[in-house]
Simulated scan of single mutants.
Amino acid sequence: MIFGRKGRGRFLDAVTGFETAVREQDADRSQQAFQQLHQQFDQAGEDEIAQAGPRLAALLSEVPAGPRGVIAVVVGACVERGADATRCAPHVFDGLAETLAAAGAFCERWAATGGGDFPEPDAGDPTPEIAERVGWEAAVAWWTLPQWEMASVAMLNRPAVRTGLDGARRTELLRALSVVEEGSGHIFKCLAYALLVLDDEPLVVIHRPSGTGYALRMHGIGDNFQLHTLLADVLVGGGHIPGRVPSAQEAAVCRDAPGQVPTTGSFNLVTPGGEWVWNEGTPSDIPLVDGGRLLVLDPPPYERSWPAGRFFPGMTGDLLLERVLDPAEAARWAALCKPAK
């Protein structure tokens, strides 16, 4: 949950009051209405949440820049409680794009005015000194970017949002995020990884020791720790290749069960070019070859253990075996692969 639940009341009345105050540009009433909205969130029914999420999302562009990120977080909380993410996400991503652009300007101006350690956003507003140094809009963007990250991840937890996100828009957001990260030295890992999640993505796996090959399909896998465990579950657990079989609980927490449990790696993940595919990365690191992603499994060079689970607890994931490649097809893919470096 990304938004606290407190108090009792009529949630939709608070939403309506907030909409009216924002559109009339009444700052005092907006603050009062937001406090009521916050207090009554806990007692809102499913139908109220379903209506409130899209309404608040559509209001985002009219909310002043300072509190806009907080309202985006409220929209994310509504989505977590069942509001339609596909109706909310376009407005959240519009705000994210605008915030990333202004945060990029913040990084440029910060460097141009002497540099130094970047300020850490706190619960309040940027200090007058910072706002004067880089401009209010840029300062607010830097201050509220963590809120936009939180709200955007709440949207991207939903498969329909990820599959409906235009490729050009995804690339635009990743590029703008890269500018901010490179300019500031701060890493917004959750946002980057969420934007990189692959769905309905074909994956060809070659098990080098046996020369066997497998056609699989990835859905909603947040990082390569999760992928590694699911590969072991599907291929070792399915009796296709030798190795350590993850427990049922280890596999479950990598799909949709809550929590984390210890696990031990079964392979070394390698690209067709021989480079290691680090568990700390994402499945998008696996190269495309002949229109599909190609991964090689080698024996592990040493024992590696980690907590099995999902990088995004709110995102379900899966890895499905579609078919075992016949020997000739497996040999053709294997011929494209170099030894590990």
Rank of each mutant, 00 (worst) to 15 (best):
T316Q: 12
S210C: 09
E62P: 03
A57M: 07
T271N: 02
E182A: 10
R332G: 02
W143M: 12
D26Q: 15
D223W: 08
R332I: 02
G309K: 05
A97M: 10
S178K: 13
C254G: 10
G259S: 02
S284R: 09
P119R: 01
F3S: 05
T127I: 15
A334C: 08
A154E: 01
A21D: 09
E46C: 14
A139K: 02
V75I: 14
G104A: 08
W276V: 13
A194H: 00
V179F: 11
P90W: 06
S305Y: 06
M1D: 08
P121N: 04
V253I: 04
R158A: 12
G211K: 01
P90G: 11
P301R: 07
A102K: 13
G243T: 02
A44W: 00
A257V: 12
W148F: 14
V161A: 09
A101I: 11
R170E: 14
E182T: 11
I286W: 00
H38L: 07
R29F: 10
F18D: 03
P209C: 13
R293I: 04
R68Y: 02
H207N: 14
T99L: 13
A192D: 15
T163E: 07
Q43R: 14
A328G: 12
P283I: 08
A154Q: 02
R162L: 10
R323F: 04
E172S: 03
A335S: 10
V270R: 00
Q39P: 04
A151N: 12
V180K: 07
T20P: 12
